[in-house]
Amino acid sequence: MGKVLVVDDSMLIRQKVSDFLLSKGHTVFDAEDGASGIDIFKKDPHFDLIITDLNMPEMNGIEMCSALKALEVPLPPIFMLTTETNPELKTRGKAAGVNGWIVKPFSEQKLSILLESVFKK
């Protein structure tokens, strides 16, 4: 079981993703924007997975990934959970250290695929 950071400005999505992860036995921390996500990560960077939204106030998901990369500490896999499907954003995400892209709407099936890919390694 792992420790997961969920970052999304939507309470609905944070709740749904967290409930699913908790039901699978994972420990979950959550944040409502990129800046808060970084604060949580800095306090204890030993996460196994980060799932983040892209469009958020204060700091968006790609900006958060760039800031995490700049910390120069080992990072867990980072997955974007977003409505955005623009290839240009995916390219920018990759450059910022994003490891995968999940398009909303949220589904347990999609998260299961993601968890399998991360935790079987």
């Binding site: 409505t83 955005e84 499907t85 623009n86 290839p87 240009e88 709407p105």
Partner: peptide, 18 residues
């Protein structure tokens, strides 16, 4: 998000604001 996903099929790309 769903509308844009479909617009992508005809090579139109846009971005959702907050």
């Amino acid at each position: 998000g769903a509308i844009n996903f479909n617009l992508n099929q005809i090579d139109i790309y846009s971005r959702v604001a907050l």
